[in-house]
């Protein structure tokens, strides 16, 4: 079974990778989905269920790491309006 430390470090890794998205909406979604996903499974005790959730999160981290490269390569030149202070 994945230990508490392993789970928390995976959560942190996902949050850290998600912060690098240049797209405002994807960045916000990754953060919200990661936190909600880990919270949803907070009370899992069945080892097989825990391992399943851990493996699922791990594949998600791999997806983030892969697509992040493309997002960074094709980042738009202008910022999203939400990243600019309203005059």
């Amino acid at each position: 079974m994945a230990s508490r430390i392993q789970v928390l470090s995976l959560c942190r890794a996902l949050l850290r990778a998600g912060r690098k998205f240049p797209d405002y909406n994807i960045r916000a979604y990754t953060k919200r989905r990661t936190l909600d996903g880990f919270r949803m499974n907070k009370n899992l005790t069945d080892p097989s269920k825990v391992n399943e959730a851990y493996a699922e999160a791990k594949t998600q981290l791999e997806v983030v790491e892969r697509v992040l490269m493309s997002y960074l390569a094709y980042a738009p030149k202008t910022k999203n309006i939400m990243e600019i202070k309203l005059h």
């Binding site: 202008t78 999203n80 939400m82």
Partner: peptide
Amino acid sequence: RISGRPLY
């Protein structure tokens, strides 16, 4: 003239 990418 738009100050940034509009919110979608």
